[in-house]
Design a protein around this nucleic acid. Structure first.
Lengths: 213, 213
DNA sequence: CCGAATATGGACGATTTCGTCCATAACGGA
DNA sequence: TCCGTTATGGACGAAATCGTCCATATTCGG
């Protein structure tokens, strides 16, 4: 549950086997994030993870299974982050503001885009069969936002006319689109603008009694 | 100016040469849009455009130049569309609503994403040297929105506190991010939600005297 | 009409990448 | 301790892709 990407492995792995598999996955995720799926080939991954060619085949029979492993790895990381206590289920404006600030103010690198979105856009047109997995993860991600917004609406923190599902998609798109633009322009401004505008929009839907400023 | 992608070619092309080059570019743009950059190889492009291998090399000495040609092709198409009279310089809410509706209501295919954004995200991490070109195009694209919003602000149609540059980035990100999510989920809903939410946010900034509904 | 420049066709080679194969080393349960 | 299972190493092969080369056909300008 907490280490979803590992639990996918067959049970016949020894401790050393699991360690090697995890090491491969870790370096593959890193390489794919910084260099892209296409540039992450056997040679690069072998030298990065310090394994031989046959080990890659042993743990990941083909590239598709490797990419799928990385997708699961990144997905569990992202979902865990969004479900952390830090954001308290996203049922306040402050939580969403904090979420946006995390990407903008924490000095987090932005030049490689979203660890899952950039990967997704690179493979969504290929024959790699990970669409279902990706679709599921993005749905769960959006649901975290949506459920928080629904609570906010029930609690009267945002207007009753607000549509939580629509707003969740808006937040997701603001982050994904902003990340892409920031990558392309090598400038965090588009990401900052789109995230803050999205949170501004949420704020514009707050009911008056909560409008303290 | 109107056919930017062609004007990049050296002048020593005959009529037949220009025709062949354009045909290659047209099919390359189509293939890259539907199949992706990586899958668009010489073999596919040869049979699609009906040319021989040496012709590709003749008009595009390497793949980078081909991709650059396609980027320019798509860029001029997009910029021309956004500068068309239809949107009247984007200085009304209705123009932005019409813009959003174009992607949602016109039955336009969405499964391949934005013709430029999907291409950009696929190559932004590669060694293909088209980052500067892409960056420039996205800047110009955002400027179209920004200038319209600035006029709206000057005319008092939106609040004086509105930030045109930020809102322009919000609109761009809503489209790019929404397109990516729609691709992944094979469902137009995320794109519709993010675009309409973005336009809703603009609408929330309209000054009262223009608020007719 | 003619020579030079351009366009086209198809084969070829160099390189890269994925995945296999087989031998050896380490490990785990009885 | 011992034997079967798992892990590791490096070489190898098959396939794909990019780009070159050279011969031939077509077109352009004078």
């Amino acid at each position: 549950m907490e280490i979803n990407a590992q639990s996918e492995a067959p049970q016949k792995l020894t401790r050393r086997g699991r360690s090697t598999r995890t090491r491969i996955l870790r370096h593959a995720a890193d390489l794919i994030y910084t260099e892209g799926v296409h540039a992450t080939n056997n040679k690069l991954l072998r030298s990065a993870a310090g394994v031989s060619g046959s080990q890659l085949t042993h743990y990941f029979p083909n590239k598709e299974s490797l990419v799928l492993g990385v997708v699961e790895w990144q997905a569990s990381s992202i979902l865990e982050f969004h479900r952390s206590e830090r954001f308290a289920g996203f049922d306040t404006i402050d939580a969403f503001q904090d979420w946006a600030d995390f990407y903008i103010l924490s000095g987090r690198p932005f030049k490689d885009g979203c660890s899952l979105g950039a990967l997704a856009s690179e493979i969504v047109k290929t024959d790699l069969d990970v669409r279902d997995e990706l679709s599921q993860v993005f749905k769960e991600w959006a649901d975290i936002f949506r459920e928080g917004l629904e609570r906010m609406r029930c609690l009267g923190r945002i207007d009753a006319s607000a549509d939580p599902a629509r707003l969740a998609h808006m937040l997701m798109a603001a982050y994904q689109g902003g990340s892409l633009l920031a990558q392309i322009e090598d400038d965090i401004t588009p990401l900052r603008d789109s995230l803050y505008a999205a949170v501004d929009h949420l704020r514009s839907l707050t009911t008056r009694r909560d409008d303290t400023n």
